[in-house]
Amino acid sequence: MTSIPGASIPILSVPNLRDIGGYRTRDGASIRFGRYYRSTDLSKITVDDAPRLADLGLVTVFDLRTHSEREAAPDRVPPSAREVPLDVLADKALRSVPAQMQSVMSDPSVAVSMLGDNRAIEYFLGSYRDFVTLPSAIASYRTLFTDLAARDTLPALVHCTTGKDRTGWATASLLLLLGVDEDDVFDEYLLTNTQLLPAFESVFDKFTAAGGDPELLKQVLGVRPEYLHAALAEMRASFGSIEGYFADGLGIGAEGQQAIRDHLLQG
C-alpha cells in the first residue's frame, strides 16, 4: 500500500483510483490510509483487475451517477461491498452533458454544438454550484456523509463516471471538514488531470483526427481550479463555512462531523 498522499493505485481498468490517506490537517493529525478511496465507475473492471480491487476490502461503494448512467454501465462491485446509489444530479434540469458524453467524445460536431464558445466551462461552473444547493445533491451528499459518520461503513469508495466532478466535490468537502489546508485540497482535486487524462489518450487522438480541438475535450474530461472555486464560493455564500454546510446544508451537526473525523483521522 502506498504511503504517499494522492498516489495513484495502478488498476488500469479503474483509472483515477486513489486513496486520500496521508494528508495532514492543520492541527497535526493525518488521514488514515485504506479508509476512503475515489475513482471512476467500476463498469469496466477486468477479470484480472477485480481481485486487486477486492484486496482493498471495500465495505461500501457510493455511486454518485444518474440512473441512466448506472443503467448504461452497471458497476462490478466487489463481493464484500454494499452499493449505495446516490443520484446527485436527479433534480438538475439540464443533464445532457453526462447523458451524451460518448457522443461528445467521439463527434467533434456534437462537442462544438453543445460545449463550444466556453459553454463547457459555464456548464461545469453551474454544476459545481448545484453540488452545494441542488436538492438532489444535498440529499445525496447527506446520505454519503451520514453513512461515513456511522460505524461499519469503511473502507469506502466514492465514484461517479469519471470520478472528477461529483466525486471531486464529495472529496474536497470531506477534506475541508477534516481540517486539510485548502491548498492541499486543490492539489488533491487537480490530480485528476494527471491520473485520468492519460487513460483517454486514444479518445483524444481520435477526436483530434476527426478535426476536433483537444482543448475542448480537456474542459470536459479534466478539472479546472475555477470549477472547485465556484462550489466553494457557493458554499460560503449559502452556509458561511464548511461546518455550516455540513450542519445547515446537510443536517449533520457537530456530533456527526466529529464522528467522521474520528473514523478517518489519526494522531
Rank of each mutant, 00 (worst) to 15 (best):
Y141S: 08
M105P: 06
L190I: 00
L53C: 05
R82K: 06
T60Q: 05
R38K: 14
D213M: 10
R236K: 14
R142I: 04
Y37N: 03
F33H: 13
L264K: 00
V185N: 04
L115Y: 03
R142Y: 04
P5T: 00
V158L: 01
D48Q: 13
A7T: 00
P74K: 09
L12S: 08
L157T: 04
T208P: 03
I31G: 07
H229N: 10
P78V: 07
Y227D: 09
S43E: 03
I11K: 15
S241P: 05
Y123V: 01
L232I: 01
L216R: 09
T25P: 01
E215R: 15
M1A: 08
R26K: 11
V61T: 07
H229L: 07
G211F: 11
R35V: 10
C160F: 10
D63G: 12
L217G: 15
A230R: 00
T192G: 08
D19E: 08
A233W: 02
D152F: 04
F131M: 11
V220Q: 11
T146N: 15
A90L: 12
L264S: 01
R70M: 10
L134S: 10
A90M: 07
G240K: 02
F207K: 13
D48I: 04
D152Q: 13
R224C: 03
E69D: 12
A137F: 03
